[in-house]
Nucleic acid binder design. Structure first.
Lengths: 230, 230
DNA sequence: CGCCTATTTGACGTGTATCAACCATCGTGG
DNA sequence: CCACGATGGTTGATACACGTCAAATAGGCG
């Protein structure tokens, strides 16, 4: 069975034989577009990204965020067509794989196949919690949950630069994640800032009190589990 | 690669060697509980079920619905612990597997392993659409989307009994899926009924005009794809 | 300098929640 | 047999969370 090693960003690597290149992306670059039949599959080596869907009139919903070690475009690989878009939140580096060799992975590297299922299952759990958030939490609770969530994810992949973690998102991202208007999002974030839970500066967010955010939102946090490295 | 056959409910079967029993459930029975470390993994052979999460104060969010052919408890099998509960919506029959033999499936039956990843990926796509719905659709659009969605899923597994499909859900289920109060859900469903899109009778819902619901919600429908049978 | 994008704030409008009834159906037990 | 409570659906009055509109500030960049 697959070995679950503690996660070390610098050791991120897919089985060498499947990697066919690297891709460097700037902030704001669209990595995968809805409807695309991409021949590729990616692992995020460094940087932040997010995936989203839009309605025809332009309303946008951010579905989840991607951090180093996350698989991008698996859905397109398994199903054949992307049903969401992916955009870089920061300068990023991606490891590129050949999509049509996925069956080979499952056939010849069962451990890796299991790892992929593991990652898909993990994504599912995150989406479940997001759904609970959108459906049943208030604006303040939702915002607290999201920031705690992003903070924990960043911490889990060792993204704390000298102690502090800054989230490279704007309030528009927060609004489109929480299903709120930008104006109300701003007022909600202000309340969190007034309570000394977060600080917003220079287009980024600093989490000052994760425990406080978790308590406010009623979220338990990410379970401490070893994850597979793809 | 796995063979994707057209779906026939009566041919539902897991590889014989992994099945260890059957479970018959009544409406309302909890099949899997949040926090459980179940030693089992299930396939729904017949009936409807749904999975949900709750906040500490009792607020409930339904995450998705399960129909014949769907895998239950995969998350618990891959991750180790269930983070949502599952309840039967109708009398149901489940096929039971041994959870700890999942690695064996991946090792010795790569096609099945791929199928499991395929199903996980499909679940992810559904959750994505639900998130878009909760975050960015109005109550009326959300309701239209949900009923069209359930109708299409039921049709896809051949659940149309002599032409008509009835959804075995109450308005409380709809409310807890859409993130609305029961009262407002009722008023919203009434609008759909007034427009001749649905009919509500005897604790079930009949979809009269799927196309109308899809147009109203701006939803494209489930892509027509062959799915693997587990 | 001027034009972006991002954030902030106030006034006002509305979608949805809450509260409170009421009705219908159904299973149960006296 | 009826009385009864429990569940599910319906409806109106009222409250509030959040959306929309409008305007202003601040920084980045050509």
């Amino acid at each position: 069975m697959p070995q679950f090693r503690p996660f070390e960003p610098q050791e991120l690597k897919f089985v060498a034989s499947f990697k066919i290149g690297e891709l460097v992306a700037e902030t704001g670059m669209m990595l995968l577009a809805e409807g695309a039949h991409s021949a590729h599959l990616y692992t995020l080596l460094s940087g932040w990204a997010f995936r989203y869907k839009t309605l025809e009139d332009g309303r946008r919903q951010i579905l989840n965020y991607m951090l180093p070690g996350d698989l991008l475009g698996l859905q397109g690989s398994v199903i054949g067509e992307m049903e969401h878009s992916i955009e870089a939140l920061s300068p990023s580096v991606l490891c590129v794989f050949q999509r049509d060799r996925l069956d080979e992975v499952f056939r010849n590297h069962p451990g890796l196949g299991f790892d992929i299922a593991w990652l898909a299952s993990r994504e599912e759990r995150m989406l479940d919690e997001h759904l609970l958030s959108l459906g049943r939490r208030s604006a303040l609770e939702r915002a607290a949950y999201l920031l705690a969530f992003l903070h924990e994810r960043a911490k889990a992949v060792g993204l704390s630069a000298h102690g502090a973690i800054t989230l490279p998102i704007t309030q528009v991202h927060v609004a489109d994640t929480l299903g709120l208007s930008v104006v109300h999002t701003n007022k909600t974030l202000r309340k969190l800032a007034d309570r000394q839970l977060i600080r917003w500066l220079d287009r980024t967010c600093q989490v000052l009190d994760v425990a406080g955010l978790k308590a406010l939102s009623g979220w338990d946090g990410l379970p401490e589990r070893r994850r597979p490295l793809i």
